[in-house]
Design a protein around this nucleic acid. Structure first.
Lengths: 346, 346
DNA sequence: TTGTACGCGTTATCAA
DNA sequence: TTGATAACGCGTACAA
């Protein structure tokens, strides 16, 4: 509980000198430095981040807003963010919203209350009109979505092209009737995946019955239900494109339940390449996103913004708005071919 | 960027009055209240948490230290912590250590720097002698381990009894030779599970060859490797007790790879009841921990400590140490029987 | 090279 | 019912 004052008194110097030693900002005689260092050790003193933050109006904290932490998809991105943040002396604060808009807004207010210096959204974007006021003022970055109305810097794969590639692959290995299972909630990324899916089928002159497009809960049960419905259709699809691995796995379990074989009777492809796709039995063909790298890049972009603002504030207060530009960054995706899909022999 | 001062000026009152309105602490004339409220809206003012925290020396932040966020086991606990914390107006800060002691220590210093009011460890405990100094001074709680040297409040299942129960079940369904696969690193919880395992076998007069005890990496590959080794032994075990679901799943994959059937040729049991155990194919018999509840209770205990300290500080500065007692809380476990184990017919 | 003094944005005490 | 003002712990311009 020792403060800088205690240290100063103990060392027989002023608090200014202690501060100088702490920050190595100006020259201090080595002799004095030692006195101060000794006093610090003696008292077990640690500078209060609070006082420092209030003074410098900079917390070295980054807020990461995520719908749920139980989702393997986000965790790798967070690890990426964390890695870059740590390197630059920043800590990350993870805000979990459970997809609740109110909670999300509360977290966003961390910017107002100066608890954090910047914000990274991992959550899919919804109708967030109020965000506009923040975008001009605070450093904010969005992961996994791009090309939307707000002027927000984004990092994502090309979801359209990724879905197109995956669908083309399903066609190439011999499928002519393919179903698409998306999640509920009109996330831009899922919409784009659906568009890529349609484009590939169109190019191959394959038609898709309306019933082949399924919306379901974004989880295991949702995948099971959607698959059950699809396999009871006549004709039933020979392949299922799921907009997420967990949905794909639900579908696989359902296929197994009715005694059919995945990769032989029916192909299933997922999305995101989460851990479970790799270790499931059968392992799941899926579209891989460089999640860790997405996190790293997102953090880099954010720190850039933070520093720009800092510099702008130091020079002139009026130009600060213009320093917050935005851009769309597209990272490469990759198709991971595994056991849940197999080339047909005819 | 408006401050309380701006609001005061705008409303034509003193900052003290603004503060009173904000905190509803003392009586303010409704007329004045309205003036202030109007000014607040007008300026888009949000109180700075920083100033407030500096003044009250209370951040309303809780630090949760976790080895990795990519681990399904921890996420549910975090959700539990978060739920309780939110109810009481606290935010949680998740610190990811990647099992690095240095990083962990840096996070612990958040207590010194007054960035957080308390700390919950989810990470398994290691040799943390330096912790002693913190335990007397700050509110700290440990999840998932108990009965150790330090006087730290803990919340966990009875790992010994849980493993005993699971092993007894394996014996009851007809297994006579059972192997134990633990993770590397001598985590107390794993050691206790091993002891429970041994106790059950001993009671059934079953002997376990030394080679049946395997240590391996705490992941999918580790499970595969350990299983490969075990199945090449003669005699090979008819059942495998894995100290974690992910290890069990590695083992299952390996069993499938060599063309044997899980639940028929070989039983496999996991630990923790993470999502993957439920949805894997086959689904995995496992010991369920009430992870969400563990999080809730941990948070409750921590908030209790935080409030105790607050009260102690208000009355007399000298008694604050004694208010930080400690206790071991044991929560119930449950055996979830699924497809990876099956009763033998003889 | 070092010390004095101010301010960061609050809350809380004391007077008025 | 309100206002003036002293803290909280720190960094830094300015003076010495």
């Amino acid at each position: 509980m020792a403060t800088i004052k205690d240290v100063a008194k103990h060392a027989g110097v002023s608090i200014a000198t202690v501060s100088r030693v702490l920050n190595q900002s100006e020259k201090v005689r080595t002799e004095t430095v030692n006195k101060v260092l000794y006093a610090i050790k003696e008292l077990g003193y640690t500078p209060s981040a609070l006082g420092r933050q209030l003074r410098t109006s900079c917390t070295k904290n980054i807020l990461v807003i995520v719908p749920s932490i139980s989702n393997g998809f986000y965790s790798a991105i967070i690890e990426g963010i964390k890695s870059k943040a740590t390197k630059d002396g920043y800590n990350i604060v993870v805000g979990i919203t459970n997809d609740d808009d109110i909670i999300e807004q509360e977290y966003i207010q961390f910017l107002d209350t100066k608890v954090v210096d910047g914000l990274i959204f991992l959550s899919p974007r919804r109708n967030r009109k109020y965000l506009k006021n923040y975008l001009d003022v605070y450093p904010i970055v969005q992961c996994n979505e791009y090309g939307l109305e707000n002027a927000i810097t984004t990092i994502a794969i090309n979801n359209f092209k990724a879905a197109y590639d995956a669908t083309k692959y399903l066609i190439d290995i011999g499928n002519k009737s393919i179903a698409f299972v998306g999640g509920e909630g009109d996330y831009t990324s899922v919409i784009q995946r659906k568009q890529g899916f349609e484009k590939a089928l169109e190019e191959a002159n394959l038609e898709v019955p309306k019933e082949y497009f399924q919306k379901t809960l974004f989880n295991f049960e949702g995948g099971k239900l959607a698959c059950k419905y699809l396999l009871e259709l006549t004709p039933a699809p020979t392949a299922i494109f799921a907009a997420a691995d967990i949905i794909a796995i639900g579908a696989i379990k359902q296929i197994q339940n009715i005694g059919k074989q995945v990769g032989k009777d029916i192909d299933v492809i997922g999305f995101d390449d989460t851990l479970i796709a790799k270790i499931y039995s059968p392992s799941v063909t899926t579209v891989s996103q460089p999640r860790y790298e997405i996190g790293v890049i997102a953090c880099e972009m954010l720190l850039l913004k933070i520093n720009n603002i800092k510099i702008a504030n130091e020079s002139s207060a009026s130009t600060s708005k213009k320093t917050l530009g935005y851009q769309d960054i597209i990272v490469p995706h990759k198709l991971e071919i595994r056991e849940s899909t197999k080339k047909k022999e005819n």
